[in-house]
Write a protein that binds this DNA or RNA. Sequence first.
DNA 1: AAGTTCTGTTTATGGCGTACACAGGGTGTA
DNA 2: TACACCCTGTGTACGCCATAAACAGAACTT
Lengths: 286, 286
Amino acid sequence: MTRGRAGDPDHVVELLWREGGAEPRPGLSLDRIVRAGVELADAEGLAGLSMRKVAERLGFTTMSLYRHVPGREQLIDLMCDEVAGETAGGAAAAGDGWRAQLEACARAGWELRRRHPWLAEVRGGRHVPGPNTIARYEQMLSTVADTGLTPAEVIAVVGLVGRFVDSEALLLVEAAETERRSGVSEEEWWGGRETLFERLYGYPTLTRLWEQGGFDRPEDPFEFGLARLLDGIELLVQKRYESRDEIKECVVCGAPVDQPAAGRPRAYCSASCRQRAYRRRTAGQD
Amino acid sequence: MTRGRAGDPDHVVELLWREGGAEPRPGLSLDRIVRAGVELADAEGLAGLSMRKVAERLGFTTMSLYRHVPGREQLIDLMCDEVAGETAGGAAAAGDGWRAQLEACARAGWELRRRHPWLAEVRGGRHVPGPNTIARYEQMLSTVADTGLTPAEVIAVVGLVGRFVDSEALLLVEAAETERRSGVSEEEWWGGRETLFERLYGYPTLTRLWEQGGFDRPEDPFEFGLARLLDGIELLVQKRYESRDEIKECVVCGAPVDQPAAGRPRAYCSASCRQRAYRRRTAGQD
DNA sequence: AAGTTCTGTTTATGGCGTACACAGGGTGTA
DNA sequence: TACACCCTGTGTACGCCATAAACAGAACTT
């Protein structure tokens, strides 16, 4: 079933978007392997996720896994989508503005990475997204879609926020993982680096900030960064909003729009485009 | 010399901050190993950096390296500081505002990661910084230090921008590395994922953005993100500036400051603190 | 009943970091 | 001059990793 298709990306697409049909039978199964992988990575981090250990945990030989999963990389893809389905995607109420909703998405991602720290450790491009991952992405996109930003900007905003969450999460994961392995806390370890500190006195700004306690009572990196990021995005949204009367193209079909000499500027080229935009706005809001 | 100190972080401090004394002798040396490591990682990425290959490149046995470097991790630390010393740190002119200077720092980091992509791949906490790394950090801190932000905020801003550069660089590295190994370009690969695309039509926003060409003509993630980030930071700086007349504590010594009933609000508790602040501001501007 | 497919095992390959014991030459001391 | 030591480089070995290939038995199809 899986044999010989290790290099075939379409295979993992099939696995990701599989029908959950097959009733649980004794023996191995894709779901069992994925779940065991998640448990293992939760406990030992992504570096601790080896095919041997997954198999051991399930009471089978290493190679038996390859009957169900093409390889380790693909197992990780499957694990990612598995946990992406955990939160119902509740986020914020639909009545809130885009900013509150986008912030809620970021926090949901943050929370997910708190429960499954290895998510932030997943690296390497060309990860095929599964249904749960896509659902989250779609939600973020739709949150930003009606801000008046261009399509490319919408995509860029969502990517920016997503990568921010990931990179901040990775920071914490690495610290936690190192603590776990070494048994020495982060503060303890850095506190013991006196041979380093004594070389830092020559740097005036660093020393001053240190003396003023900037390193002792730091800002929360996630909260601080998220606030700055959203501020920056909001500024762009405002700029686009203020220049909305300069719109020369219909936001739906792209055709040129005649602007009236006075009164509210037009965004749509025709009533049908306006109606189409309305339907899109309300679509999916069950 | 190195033997038996593999677990000792102080050792790598000594190596990083070593005096460049020792004249080049035949045989191995720390510098030669580090340079070979940089070359190798430049060519094959951090994953391709193995002790075996470094040794091979130098014409020695693998274990000979361990006479000069405690281990792979520490070699990477040394490589990082080696390349951090490459750019003279020119950045922007001192006359420019903090924003232009901070942007220049970010671009310098970006440029460095373009030349040494593996820099972005370096992971794991507790990396001991060397003199070149610290010099860059000091420069960024001093750039943001005179914005009126609190010490903790200054540190948070520098960290935020630094991690942003890193995470965006990592994105490109991973793509490039995968292309190199697979021989298939990113566009080609994603273009061939039709079995995936046909499952995405059900998502309205995603589909619409796709149809509008948002994925074909994307924003540059680095430029877009940097602009948003700096905008957000500028907003904070403005907020702090506007509320500067509410300052209740001397920004130098932290003592309470009596505010005059009228006129320009005081920032310093005394003339000596004002003078000290001036000296700090002008220090290091050779 | 025969053939095929699915599932799990066994064995083996080639890569990695690095611990450990050793060898030879240069240097310092008696 | 003779001895000891240490610095540098070597060879071997261990335990991890992913996974390729050939095989064995059970179950399902025709």
